[in-house]
């Protein structure tokens, strides 16, 4: 049964205004959400503490910020870091009017810029109070902006035990790399229960391309709940002409027994390790 109520003309006008207002609000939200995806940047050195000056190099060619000559960084630290204070950079004074200290430096070619900063200075926190940071790049008024960057971690100044550890902590493409699995620090059931058998390693070059099929390394037991594997990136793969390896991923694989006592293959989390340019 459909009931028809008489429509009051006044109500009709109010509804129309509400509808228009809703459209405007939605449009505003959509406009704000239209950030520009951007990942074409590098940070040197590849690993850094909160006390190291870093140089960020950006290339906006082919992005929505291409052609812009004045761009600014907007940055923040420790977002979501347990036990640490979230803090915005000294560059974040006014979204609609970024200050000169936030301005990127043109790098000589169109759409290419650099920006240098030191974590402790940028976020006005002690080195031990900084875990990671993120940023976005914007026009002065904020009319255009990139999306939030991925989290970039500061190299810790105090030793933090981890389930998966690389030795040495910073390695280059020609170095002997020791991959460690500290099973005693494992927090997931699979990692705690697994009998490690191998390590899967994949190396990537500076174009982001994989250097080849992932390699499988044998695992050695190096003591109570400690497992190791070794490799040299340039011994396992050869970089292409004019290319260099910039990072690799690894995970330990092993077996656990299911409810029927049958072996099941499981793996640890995949860890991404940057390779440092050495001389």
């Amino acid at each position: 049964m459909i009931m028809n109520f008489p429509v009051n003309p006044l109500n009709k006008t109010i509804m129309k205004k509400l509808f228009i207002l809703t459209i405007f609000l939605l449009g505003g939200r959509l406009a704000m959400a239209q950030c520009i995806n951007f990942t074409n940047y590098t940070i040197a050195p590849s690993t850094f503490t909160a006390e190291d000056e870093i140089t960020m190099t950006f290339d906006f060619t082919g992005t929505g910020l291409a052609g812009e000559t004045n761009l600014y960084i907007w940055t923040w630290a420790n977002k979501g870091a347990t036990g640490l204070t979230e803090k915005v950079g000294i560059t974040n004074t006014d979204w609609g009017n970024s200050p000169e200290i936030a301005k990127l430096t043109p790098a000589g070619s169109p759409n290419k810029f650099t920006y240098k900063f030191t974590g402790t200075t940028m976020y006005e926190l002690a080195p031990g109070q900084l875990k990671h940071f993120q940023f976005l790049i914007k026009t002065k008024t904020g009319s255009k902006q990139t999306c939030d960057s991925e989290t970039k971690a500061f190299d810790p100044l105090v030793f933090i035990p981890n389930v998966l550890r690389v030795f040495p902590a910073r390695v280059g493409q020609n170095d002997v790399v020791l991959l460690n699995f500290h099973q005693d620090l494992a927090t997931t059931l699979n990692e705690q229960r697994m009998e490690p058998v191998s390590v899967t390693v994949e190396v990537f070059d500076n174009t982001g391309a994989s250097a080849g099929a992932p390699i499988t390394l044998p695992v050695k037991n190096a003591g109570a709940k400690l497992w190791k594997a070794f490799f040299v990136p340039t011994r396992s793969y050869t970089p292409g002409a004019g290319k260099k390896f910039t990072h690799f991923t690894y995970k330990f694989n092993g077996t656990i027994r299911d409810a029927n006592n049958q072996p099941v293959t499981v793996s640890t989390a995949v860890i991404d390790v940057p390779l440092t340019d050495m001389k």
Partner: peptide, 12 residues
């Protein structure tokens, strides 16, 4: 000694 090309710090 292997040195970080970006910072000139000895690493390994």
């Amino acid at each position: 000694t292997r040195i970080d090309a970006a910072t000139n710090k000895p690493l390994i």
